[in-house]
Each structure stands twice: as structure tokens, then as C-alpha cells.
């Protein structure tokens, strides 16, 4: 089971722009490689990454097989209110890996 890592501030001033750094361990199997017997290895990648802030979708991304293994993605949000930032990684096989972090906005 892939384990996400997220780094973002625990507190921020209202209106402050903060960076969210994310990464997750995943092979991002491209579907273009062959195994030792010459058979194609089926594609298995994370194809979508979504971010909500207190339930509202604020950023999302669609990924192709050109995204490197153990995908890293960082982006910026504005601190509007205290609450939760939740991230979800959607795997080709239907699994969803999720994690969230609290932020206190003063």
C-alpha cells in the first residue's frame, strides 16, 4: 500500500500563500515496458491527483505515464480559514490513496 508524504505549514496568517509538497511511493508502470519473456507489462499508474480544502476542490491534476515513479507534485494555496486539506491519489486499478493535514489560520 503506497504511503503518501505531505509537507505544508500547520499554521498560516489569513491570506497567506503557502506551498503544499506531496509525494507517494508508486512504480508508475508505464505500460511500455516488456518483461523478461518479452510480454508487455500492463500500465498501472496514478492517473489523477485531487486536492480539497474544507471539502472544496481547489486543485487537481491528470497524469500520463510520463510522470516519474514515486510521483512528486507541489502547488500553492491561499490560507482562507482553519480546516483540513485533503489529498487523493487515484490508481488505474481503482484504488484511492488519501491523506489529510490540518491547518490553523489566525
Amino acid at each position: 500500500m503506497p504511503t503518501p508524504r505531505v509537507k505544508m505549514p500547520a499554521t498560516a496568517a489569513k491570506g497567506e500563500i503557502f506551498e503544499v509538497k506531496t509525494t507517494i511511493d508508486h512504480d508508475m508502470e508505464s505500460g511500455q515496458r516488456k518483461d523478461k519473456d518479452g510480454k508487455p507489462i500492463p500500465r498501472k499508474i496514478i492517473n489523477k491527483f485531487t486536492v480539497t480544502y474544507n471539502g472544496k476542490q481547489v486543485f487537481w491534476s491528470e497524469w500520463a505515464s510520463a510522470v516519474s515513479a514515486n510521483p512528486y507534485c507541489s502547488f500553492f494555496l491561499t490560507a482562507t480559514e482553519s480546516g483540513t486539506v485533503e489529498m487523493q491519489w487515484h490508481d488505474d486499478d481503482g484504488q484511492v490513496y488519501a491523506t489529510s493535514q490540518k491547518i490553523t489560520v489566525a
Binding site: T3, R5, K7, K21, T23, I24, D25, N70, Y72
Partner: peptide
């Protein structure tokens, strides 16, 4: 330590 992907293994 965050952008270094090796830390996925350290955390594990």
C-alpha cells in the same frame, strides 16, 4: 528531505 525520494524509504 522532502524532495529527496529516498525519504519515502526512511519513513517506512
Amino acid at each position: 528531505d522532502f524532495t529527496n525520494p529516498g525519504f519515502l524509504w526512511v519513513e517506512d
